[in-house]
Amino acid sequence: MTVETIAVGQGEYPRHLRTAGFRDNVSGYEICATTPDRSPELWHRYLTGAQEAYRHFGNERVLEYENVVDGASTALFFAATDRAGNVVAGLRIQGPYTWASEVSSLRPWNGRAGAADLNLMMARRIPRGVVEARAAWVARGIPCRNELAAAISRCIAHAPRLLDARYCFATVASFTADRHRASGGLIASSIPPVPYPDDRYRTVPIWWDTRTYRVFADELQYLMMRGELRAMGLAEHRPRRARQPFGHAGEECSAHAR
C-alpha cells in the first residue's frame, strides 16, 4: 500500500492530515490511518465492517451509526486490509476534546460508583490533549485474527501522536484488557466496571499516555510500535522514567522505565 506521511504540527486541524500507514509484520495486514473526508470510500467500508461485527453480538446500537456516518465527529480512523483489499478491522478516533461533557462514553458510569473520579480524570487531562478510540473491531474467521487485534490495539496508542495530543482514552470489555495492557494501556483500576452495553460485559476505562506507554508495554509490542511510528514518519519521544504517571485519585499504577 502506498501512503503519504501524516503531517502533524502544533495547532494543525486534524481533518487536514494526510494519509499514513504501515504493514503489521506479524499478521501481514496493511493498516491505513486517514480521515473520512480524505478517504470516503474506505471510511464507508470500515463502517460497514463495524456494523457487521457489532450486529453479530447484538451491539450495533453502540456504534451510533446515524450520528457518525458523515464523518464529522471522527478526527482519524484506522482500517486494516487484506491482500484483496477487503477491510478486515479498524477503529475510529474522536477529539481532541475540549470539555469532559463531550465524552459520551463516560455516560454509562452516570449514577454509579466511580463516576466523579472518572470525570475528574478526564477533566485533568483535557488541557494536555485527549483523544478517544471508538468502534474498534476485527472480522471473525480471518487468518491471524489475534495478531491483528494486537495491531489494532497498538493503533490506539499511535492515535494521540498522530493528532498532537498526549492521551488516548477508551472504554473496553474487561476480557480485552490484557491485550491493551500489552500496548501500554493502563486500566483505571479503582473505577468499578459497568455492565455496558448490557449485562454480558464488564466495561472498564483505559488510558494510553504518549509519554509513558513504553514503560508499561510488553517489550515485543513496544519494539513493533517503534517501527510503526517510523513507518508513519513520526519520531518517538525520548524515553523517560515513570513511577506513578497518573498520580491522582482513582488511578493506581507504578513501573520503572526500561
Rank of each mutant, 00 (worst) to 15 (best):
134 R>I: 11
102 E>S: 11
171 T>N: 06
183 S>P: 04
92 R>Q: 08
116 A>I: 02
91 L>G: 13
158 H>C: 12
170 A>F: 01
176 T>F: 13
166 R>S: 05
154 R>F: 02
70 D>I: 00
79 A>E: 00
178 D>G: 12
170 A>T: 05
125 R>S: 11
168 C>Y: 02
121 M>D: 09
185 G>W: 02
114 G>M: 07
104 S>H: 15
186 L>K: 01
173 A>R: 05
141 G>C: 05
189 S>W: 11
72 A>G: 13
169 F>V: 06
70 D>M: 00
181 R>C: 03
86 N>C: 11
75 A>V: 12
113 A>W: 11
71 G>C: 04
129 G>Q: 03
117 D>V: 10
142 I>C: 08
100 A>C: 12
181 R>P: 01
128 R>I: 11
147 E>Y: 07
124 R>D: 15
101 S>E: 11
191 I>W: 09
191 I>T: 02
77 F>S: 02
143 P>R: 04
138 V>G: 00
161 R>K: 10
79 A>T: 01
102 E>Y: 13
155 C>R: 03
94 Q>L: 10
185 G>F: 05
175 F>C: 11
120 L>Q: 09
125 R>A: 10
101 S>R: 14
90 G>Y: 09
112 R>T: 12
165 A>E: 08
108 P>M: 10
127 P>K: 09
119 N>E: 12
91 L>C: 12
158 H>Q: 15
172 V>Q: 03
125 R>H: 15
130 V>F: 02
92 R>V: 08
185 G>A: 02
91 L>K: 03
70 D>S: 09
84 A>T: 10
136 A>N: 07
135 A>S: 15
109 W>F: 07
87 V>R: 06
130 V>S: 05
121 M>C: 13
179 R>Y: 09
135 A>P: 13
162 L>R: 01
143 P>H: 00
155 C>E: 05
74 T>V: 04
190 S>I: 10
83 R>S: 08
74 T>Y: 01
111 G>Q: 08
129 G>S: 00
120 L>K: 12
114 G>V: 03
96 P>N: 13
87 V>M: 08
75 A>N: 11
113 A>H: 10
176 T>K: 14
158 H>Y: 11
129 G>L: 03
189 S>L: 13
171 T>L: 01
147 E>S: 09
182 A>W: 13
190 S>V: 04
139 A>K: 08
128 R>E: 15
176 T>N: 15
94 Q>A: 15
169 F>N: 10
